[in-house]
């Protein structure tokens, strides 16, 4: 397919001089702000490189906003935050057309969604209507307002956070909406040393401001375009398929992983491999991203012995590598 080839060639021209080193620096740079969470940073970066969106499920105050801001700054991207509340309206997200008397026309004032990195905070506190406005933008990468289509900027990366669903006043995201997030991660508490460094260290806000961009947006797009070309051998694809098949056939799983989940798993593994400085994917890469990519899409079968997601993941993790 000639057009695609040209696109790849074009983007490869914009690749950073040394992608491996750049990525290492990126991880290190963000790691200075979010302490002791190297894996989460790498996962978030994989998700971004695989052109997916990230859902972070955790309690307030765990560093979700800092992570999003740190990513945006290190990648040289613009950043917007939307605090979701129960009275949030779709227009508050995508923007409104306002009549301008001088020009005698309606002019579209883009909402916060028109940003390269969007932090959608506490997404499950808004009504489903508001949620779906964001989710459509995520999936389509464009917003249609009164017949006019507005493309969101490139790259476009949504980080949504979600409170544990057992808290009051939440609208749980339905499975179909959850599926739109490529990954779902849990930040978790920092370990002893990280927490110590956090408590004795300087002001986060100042440190955040001190991060200088390591990539141009164009270079990031070029990196994203490289992900599908990271070599996934037949044996590796066999493994991914074995995982998908297991989730569909083994007892205990209510729903198998969707083809979209399968593709996402492969892309994330490819991104992970690239971050790891390799140009081919290993089963270990798949295993590294598996909990984040598959976890939120799995549900235990409905019977008396409810199986937790952790248990289902453990079973998937035990699938033999062909």
């Amino acid at each position: 397919m000639p057009p695609q080839t040209t696109a790849t060639q074009k983007s490869s021209q914009k690749l950073p001089a040394n992608p491996g080193e750049t990525i290492t620096k990126l991880v290190a740079g963000i790691g200075n702000i979010i302490l002791g969470k190297g894996d989460i940073i790498r996962l978030a970066l994989s998700c971004l490189l695989a052109r997916g969106h990230l859902l972070i499920e955790d309690l307030p105050g765990m560093g979700k906003t800092t992570l999003a801001q740190g990513l945006a700054r290190a990648l040289g991207l613009e950043f917007q935050r939307i605090q979701f509340t129960s009275d949030l309206l779709p227009a508050d997200i995508i923007g409104v057309s306002i009549y301008e008397r001088e020009a005698q026309t309606f002019r579209f004032h883009p909402g916060p969604v028109f940003s390269q990195v969007v932090l959608a905070d506490e997404i499950n506190r808004a009504t489903p209507r508001a949620q779906s406005a964001l989710l459509e933008a995520m999936e389509e990468r464009q917003v249609t307002v009164e017949g006019t289509t507005h493309a969101v900027p490139e790259p476009f990366f949504v980080i949504a956070t979600q409170n544990p669903s057992n808290q009051t006043g939440t609208f749980e995201l339905p499975e179909s909406q959850l599926d739109r997030f490529l990954m779902c991660v849990h930040m978790g508490y920092p370990d002893h040393h990280a927490e110590r460094a956090l408590l004795t260290g300087g002001d986060r806000r100042e440190q955040l401001a001190s991060i200088r961009p390591l990539l141009t947006p164009a270079e990031l797009v070029a990196l994203q375009a490289r992900i599908p070309n990271v070599h996934a051998s037949a044996a590796l694809v066999d493994y991914v398929q074995a995982l998908l098949r297991f989730s569909r056939e083994a007892p205990g799983f209510r729903l198998g992983l969707s083809p979209r989940a399968g593709l996402g798993l492969l892309r994330c593994a490819q991104a992970w491999a690239l971050i790891d400085g390799r140009n081919h994917v290993l089963p270990e890469d798949v295993q590294a991203v598996l909990p984040s990519v598959a976890g939120h899409r799995l549900q235990g079968a409905e019977d008396s012995t409810q199986i937790s997601q952790q248990e289902l993941l453990a079973r998937l993790r035990a699938v033999p590598i062909p």
Binding site: L282, P283, A318, V319, P320, I321
Partner: peptide
Amino acid sequence: TEASEGPIA
């Protein structure tokens, strides 16, 4: 070894 263990691991 376990069948689900990757070669590098």
